[in-house]
Amino acid sequence: MSDPTNPTNAGRPPKPTKSQKAQARAERAAELIRQQQAAERRRNMLVVASVVVAMVLIVGVLFFINASRDSVDDIDAAPAGKSEWGLTIGDADAPHDVIIYEDFLCPFCGQLERESSEDLNRLAEAGKVQVEYRPFNLLQADYSVAAANAFAEVLEKEGPEVAKKFHDLLFEDQPSESGEQPGNDWLLEKAVEAGADEATVKAGIEGGGQEDWVEGATRAAADAGVNSTPIILLDGKAYQEGRTIEEIADNLISELE
């Protein structure tokens, strides 16, 4: 730019022509618009960023509330072998204990039983684990109640060994949750097949004599925070390592081996 205090005008560039002036004006105006646009872009970015941050915060806070409200991690169940509502196999001094909450009708329970029952029997016999099965009425179905009732009756009258056999048979031939479910005749048949004396358990199975037991077991499960089945507790903690029941069962067995 020229220096107006210099009287000699030496080195002064030639006077700008009209068109050059107009061009300079246009450039200044364009510059102003560019600045405004840059300011607008900054403002927009700031708005986008703050809205995104707010959204992420909301999602994050709800995520953590959700995670802390979930109940599987704080199931507070009676230790294995110490419940009034279960069937225990294996030695109390075994290095691990497993508790399985189940409903006789729940398909995933059936799958878990078919995948794990034999191995758990073997490991319990070998003194590697103590397992307590805690059947209860989760599904609020007639069969869930009838089967648990029959189980309790067999357990009381015939002892844990026959009851375990009965329990395994019920899961081996588990009726479908969607179809029609068998009644007490079928349950009695299975109990006899498991080694129960028909005359001893008939009245209790057919008359629903253990329905108080079923109610008690169901209440105890609810009190412990169990609201789905199957729930596996390994050494008191919910165990769910695996994508499928099959994987979970396999992983559980290999932890116990």
């Binding site: 959700n66 995670a67 979930d70 390592e241 695996g242």
Partner: peptide, 13 residues
């Protein structure tokens, strides 16, 4: 399992 858990908590919010 652990991923399923996180996804289950995350999806609704």
């Amino acid at each position: 399992s652990s991923v399923a858990e996180a996804v289950g908590y995350l999806l609704p919010p």
